[in-house]
């Protein structure tokens, strides 16, 4: 792996009233890492994503991305710097065809900057990206109305919306959950290809088998605190992890 630090989090804390959703989390992420984040429901995973991407302002702590302090910056500024994220609760632009959903990120200042001028035919670029994440062009799936897509495609659409932004870091909040085994089996190679293409990835996932296959590093959150950090095989064996994560709930979802 690469040595360049892409994301550094120091003492990150978020309190909602009396609830400490994220508690004093430190994290260093290197370029080209795939970091898995696991933890039971309500352990603060989504809040961590919201903090990194600016949708929630931290109570305490610092977030450094590529050497810039992005703590407290607005979401669109952070996205513009190159951090893309999916939403756990998907709300596509329902009145638009699937490929038209990607017109929004493709019209962003970041994309304009990165291609150095005009992208040409944005529709064609959008359809290419959708094909990359598994929309069958021959079956005209990219042309379907977003509101008519089944869950599996909505998850892919979320991923595609992130890719369209040409990010350096992509944060996936449970993109596998709700998918069938067969669908997950097609998504894993998609994630592998994105990684091979040079992306750094943070994956929040309950599907441990697939996650541990993809990730080179895993952290575990419990009640907002990071209780483990290491390579998947090590983390799997730690007693606290077993207790916090698998002990109470046999099949977390």
């Amino acid at each position: 792996m690469n040595d360049e630090v892409i994301l550094e989090i120091k003492g990150l804390t978020k309190q909602f009233g009396g609830v400490t959703a994220v508690n004093n989390v430190d994290l260093t992420l290197h370029r080209h890492d795939i970091l898995g984040v696991i933890g039971p429901n309500g352990s603060g995973k989504t809040t961590l994503v919201n903090l990194i991407t600016g949708f929630v302002k931290p109570t305490k702590g610092k977030i450094i991305y590529l050497g810039h302090n992005i703590t407290g910056k607005t979401p669109h500024v952070i996205a513009d710097r190159g951090i893309a994220r999916t939403f756990q609760v998907m709300r596509p632009y329902a009145t638009l065809a699937a490929y038209k959903n990607l017109i929004v990120p493709l019209s962003s200042p970041r994309v304009k900057r990165m291609v150095g001028g005009s992208l040409g035919d944005r529709d064609a670029v959008a359809i290419d990206i959708l094909e990359e994440v598994g929309f069958e062009r021959d079956a005209y799936v990219p042309y379907k109305l977003a509101s008519s897509l089944p869950l599996g495609y909505l998850k892919r659409l979320e991923l595609a919306r992130c890719l369209a932004l040409r990010p350096d870091l992509i944060i996936c909040d449970e993109v596998f959950s709700g998918l069938s085994m067969a669908e997950i089996a097609t998504m894993v190679p998609v994630m592998e290809r994105l990684h091979d293409a040079g992306l750094t990835i943070i994956m929040i996932e309950h599907r441990l088998r697939e996650l541990f296959r993809l990730a080179n590093r895993v952290i575990v959150l419990n009640f907002g605190s990071k209780i483990a950090d290491g390579v998947p095989a090590e983390v799997m064996e730690m007693e606290e992890v077993k207790a916090a994560y698998m002990g109470t709930e046999a099949v977390p979802c």
Partner: peptide
């Protein structure tokens, strides 16, 4: 057109527009 689709995006889901690096 593309500019109009960004406007409609704001109406449908402004969080996704922000996450796409565009100021709402």
């Amino acid at each position: 057109e593309d500019a109009g689709i960004v406007l409609r995006g704001v109406k449908d889901n402004d969080m996704a527009v922000q996450a796409s690096g565009i100021s709402v």
